[in-house]
Each structure stands twice: as structure tokens, then as C-alpha cells.
Design a protein around this nucleic acid. Structure first.
Lengths: 341, 341
DNA sequence: TTGTAGGCGTTATCAC
DNA sequence: GTGATAACGCCTACAA
């Protein structure tokens, strides 16, 4: 007798002189098992140190109660909020989360997708890497009927719901807000235009300009990776411009803050000389001086919603194509100290 | 024939007129299989749309290549850094991460531990909840030889390595720094004293006071949950004090920042009237005005190290008791604008 | 209400 | 180099 051997339902069955099937049912609180038997089973299980083997169960049921999550990075304020929201919902519903980060590269995204696929996740929640151009690596899931939901950084695919905010509208609103303060030359700092979030914010910005009677020209657009470092570099670019902007709308807060602080360090008055606006409502926007006007959208809420939709689908096999694009609310957060005059 | 049925190694074997054992070995690049056969196997696998079934493999091998992670919250700057670090190391080593949060309650922590246990994680990385008083829920792992490593918020147990920074020393250093600026009345805001991190920082603070010839009294200690909200409340308390402190050392940055800003709003000059120091080197400390002096310790590094140690143990069955407490370096980060005069 | 039996897909052991 | 076979531990028709 191997002393390391795990206690199984067969051992319990033997000790109680009943069948393993009954033990299995008893442990699952199956209605067709007498109370007395159930009690005996639970007691024996506890006494014998039985532990349920999810692996065997998963193999048999062809299900894992596990959701795969693939995101660009785990450590951004927005992403960690989103994941916290997912975990809450998943945990409550009895699902586990397997989490991996693409570190903004397609290669890792593909690898991670393969691992998730082999590990038989029941569904996938994905926010795309910076340079992902197509989603062929997710087709294998779709072909097998494993639901894939994109959130925030999404991809149009008729089988995959997109959970996003209206980035176009948000970009439009925040740009209009800058113009309404009297700004005439609004520069925009954005990221890879293949990513919906950045393309849409830019589109909103552009339309706001033209609707408000201002014209756009290429020199008003800086594209970088939206990192803090990128913000500093953008500040240098701005300082070197012949005709400096009187407002800057940056497609994310961390880049906005570092750009703004660098300009401030160089003697530019904010918002007097140049007004600033960001995107994401990162905690720093409330702390930086002057505070940063931004777009609020709750990462936690987006994470919760994504998980809820996925789980609802998994539990009642709802048709995912019904909920194709789901827009979450966002708010323009105007911080008084960031407004001119 | 069920069209939904997955392709197995048996199907491949049949189509190639070889045995399933050979296919299994071939797919694993086993040395004792001829190149020709291997190629045939891989080609057939690809063509037939075979996907490896980790579940079956895990069941058979009695291993999952999965690491469980239990943390208080996923969305703090420190924790998401730590988890990002773990994910990087785990991913590179071929391990998956199952992540869950206790939301600072023992109850969830216990539940999560049970799930992880049943899911047969190969090892556990844990940072304890705010109110965890004992770790009996981890004994089941220890008894079965499943390694449990605590990081940051730890618990003394001879079988479980602790990965931390020297919180005592850090608390001492930052308090001394405040006193060296001429502060005579240093208040301390801390959290639950059952948690090593807070108890140790407090101990360091107290010893620094007495070593520098200052005396401690109970009114100089505020205990709360160290949230932003708690910071505001602490500010109110401080304003109401008869003899106000001329310095405040807070055991975490987010609480420090909100407390400081609230005092500033009430007309207190920082650092002129009251100097401030925090803990964690959260990004906001570089942005808030005045910048916040703090203790830096890299969450990412701590996460990486924790995962590395766990995986090293899993791979060569190293004795975990050898590395009992592992101290990571920390640095006192003095931000000029936070220093008096 | 309970039991029987077969299978989920892989891998380790032993044999040739 | 390759094959046969027996687990790994659970679940669920089907039968009684």
C-alpha cells in the first residue's frame, strides 16, 4: 500500500460498503440520494482525508470551469482594475481565472492562446497586444465553439462580442471641451492606429476640430507608445515646434502626466500656455498639479461585465452573437484646476 | 461517429499504423523515436487537427504545471507589479498562474485555498489578507508536500519561506530621516498590527524615535485600514489634535497622499508645518506636490523572485526550508521637495 | 434509491 | 525503436 496514494471515492465506497457512483452523487448533493447516506459519505470523506480531484472531474466532464485571460500587461491601473472585476465575478460563479500577459507582443499572445487552448479553458477574455494585426490565433477557439470576448482593445469579428466604451464620442467630447475653453491649436498624442481605442479617440478628436471650425494638420498628431517615456519625448517635440499648440489631448493619462510635467519643468504654464487632457481617469490625474481633465471609465466595471457575459453564455449557452458590441458608459471628468482662466 | 469528438493520439496512431505510445513519445520529442516517425506524427497531428489534452496529461502525471496565487487585492500598484513579475517568470518556465483575491477577508482566503487545493496546483504564492490570524487553511498543502511561499504579508512557519523586505529597517530609516530634518513630533499611521509589514514598520519607527532621543506616546499612533479614505479621516484627527505633529510617517503611499492633500487643503503647509513620508514608492509619490519621500521596493522584483524560488523547488525538489526568510533590498527615496527648508 | 460498467486522453512500465 | 496494457479518479447512461 502506497502511503502517498490519494483517497478516492472508491476508498470511501469500500469503507461504507456502497458503490463509488453513490459516493460521487452524494458528494455532489445529488437529489436522489438519501440524507442518511449523504451524511455517512461526507463524514467518511472528511475522516479519510478525501480531496476532490478537479482534474479527473474536468477530464471526464470535458469542462474546466476555468476562464482564460490574456491582456497586454497586468500592471496598469486600468488593467488591474479590470482583472480585479473579472476575478470577483468569476470567483462568485465558481470559475477560476488563468491569467497571462502578452507584454504587448503578438508572439506571446499567440503562445498564450495556445496554452489556454490546450488547457481547455471554457472561454477567453482578451484585450489585444499593441501590434496584433489579425486574430487567426483565436480562430481555433471559435471553431470549437469556445467563446472569445474582447474588451477594451478589441477586434471586429462577428462571433466575438466587443466590450468597450465609445472611444469616438469620448475623444470628441474631451476635444470639444478644450476648444470651448478657447484653445485654437489642439495637438493630439495617440498610439498605434491599428488599435480601435486609439483610432477612435483620434477620429473623435478630428471630428470635434472640424465641427468647431478648426482645421487639422499632420503636425498636430504625435504617435508614440503612450508610455511615460513617450510623454517626455513628446514634450521635447512640442517645445521644438515653431507654432506650439495651446492644448494637448493625450490618449492616455500616464503619458499625459509625464508630458505635462516635463513641459512644466521647462517653464511652460499649464493650463495657461498649454491646456492638457488625458484619458482613463488614472489615480494620478487627481494628484498631479494642475489636476488632469480626463475620461473616466471604470476598469473594474468593464472587467465585471466581460466576465458576466462570458459566464452567462457558458451557463445557458446563450447566443453570443446577440450581444455584439457592448458600450459602457464613460464620463468626461473636468478638473477645475486644469481649465484655462 | 460523433463529429464533435476530439482527435486523440489513438486516432493519429491508427492513421499511421503505429501505437499510441509511440505517438505520445513522438509528440514529446522523446529521444528513442526515429526522426522519420516523429515527422510523420507531427504532420498527421497537424493535418488531423489534433490538440494536446493537458487535462488528461495532468491527471496521469499527477501534476498541473500550475501555480496558485492568492493576494488581498489585485488592483494595487504594488500587487499588480508583483503579479506581473510572477507571470513573466512562470510563463517562461512553462507554468500557468491561477489567480484569486481574498479581498482582505480570511473567509475568501480559505475558500480560495480550497479551490486551489482541489485544482491540484503544484505550489502556492500567498500574500495574506488583512485579518488572517492563523494559516491552518494552508496546512493541507504543507502536509501533502505542496510548497507554500508567503511574500510581503507573511506568516512565520518553518516549512514556508517568507519573501519580504526589512520592514523594520525601512521604518527606522524613514523615521530617522524625518527627525534629521529637525522634526520633533513624528506621528505614525499604520495598519493591523497582526500583519508583519505594519508591525515591523511601527517597531522601526519607535526605535528610531528613542534612538534619536524622542519619546513615543500613544497619541502619536493612528491605526486604520490605510485606504485613501482612511487618510482623509486621519487628516481630520490630526487637525483636531491639541499638539499637532510636525511630521507624519504613513505605512503606505496611497493613504499618505490623501492625508497630506487633505491637510494641504485645510491650509497646512507641507513640509513646512508638517513633513510627510510614505511607503511603497507608488507612482503618485512622484507626481503629488510636494513629492512624497517614501520607501522603494520593487513589487515586480518580489514577484519574480517568489516565482523563481517556487519553480526552482518544483523542478529539482529543493528543500524549501533552506531558504527561510529572504530579504529583498529596499531604498529610502528622498524627494527634495518633501524636505523641510 | 443505489449499482454496474465503460470511457475521458494521456503516460509509465514492461516487454520485445 | 516500438508496442501492449494498465492506471490516473471521476462521471453518467443504463439497469435494477
Amino acid at each position: 500500500m502506497n502511503p502517498e496514494r490519494e483517497v478516492t471515492i472508491y476508498d470511501i465506497a469500500k469503507s461504507l460498503n456502497i458503490s463509488a457512483a453513490t459516493v460521487s452523487r452524494g458528494l455532489k448533493d445529488h437529489p436522489g440520494i438519501s440524507k442518511i447516506t449523504k451524511k455517512k459519505i461526507f463524514d467518511a470523506a472528511k475522516e479519510m482525508g478525501y480531496r476532490f480531484n478537479s482534474l479527473a472531474s474536468n477530464l471526464r466532464r470535458q469542462r474546466t470551469n476555468t476562464i482564460g485571460v490574456i491582456v497586454p500587461r497586468l500592471n496598469s491601473s486600468f488593467m488591474s482594475d479590470a482583472i480585479a472585476g473579472m476575478e470577483k465575478v468569476a470567483n462568485d460563479a465558481g470559475y477560476n481565472l488563468i491569467i497571462s500577459q502578452s507584454l504587448e507582443t503578438v508572439k506571446k499572445e499567440v503562445d498564450n492562446a495556445t496554452t489556454m487552448f490546450n488547457n481547455r479553458v471554457d472561454g477567453l477574455l482578451v484585450s489585444l497586444a499593441y501590434d496584433t494585426k489579425n486574430i487567426s490565433h483565436f480562430e481555433q477557439f471559435i471553431n470549437k465553439g469556445i467563446p472569445v470576448i474582447f474588451f477594451d482593445r478589441v477586434f471586429e469579428h462577428k462571433k466575438c462580442p466587443n466590450i468597450i466604451i465609445d472611444n469616438y464620442k469620448a475623444g470628441y467630447e474631451i476635444t470639444r471641451h478644450l476648444i470651448e475653453q478657447g484653445c485654437k491649436r489642439v495637438l493630439h498624442i495617440s498610439g498605434n492606429q491599428a488599435r480601435n481605442v486609439y483610432a477612435e479617440r483620434f477620429r473623435g478628436y478630428k471630428d470635434a476640430l472640424s465641427d468647431m471650425g478648426l482645421s487639422f494638420s499632420d503636425e498636430l498628431l504625435i504617435i508614440n507608445n503612450l508610455s511615460s517615456q513617450g510623454g517626455v519625448e513628446a514634450a521635447v517635440q512640442i517645445l521644438e515646434m515653431e507654432k506650439r499648440p495651446d492644448a494637448v489631448f493625450v490618449a492616455n493619462d500616464s503619458c499625459a502626466v509625464s508630458c505635462m510635467l516635463e513641459l512644466k519643468r521647462q517653464g511652460i504654464r499649464i493650463p495657461g500656455d498649454i491646456a492638457f487632457a488625458g484619458f482613463n481617469n488614472d489615480p494620478v490625474t487627481r494628484v498631479v498639479e494642475p489636476n488632469l481633465t480626463t475620461i473616466n471609465y471604470q476598469g473594474e466595471e468593464m472587467g465585471e461585465l466581460s466576465a458576466k457575459i462570458l459566464i452567462a453564455h457558458l451557463n445557458n449557452n446563450q447566443d453570443l452573437t446577440l450581444t455584439h458590441t457592448l458600450l459602457l458608459r464613460h464620463q468626461l471628468v473636468i478638473r477645475p484646476s486644469s481649465v484655462k482662466q
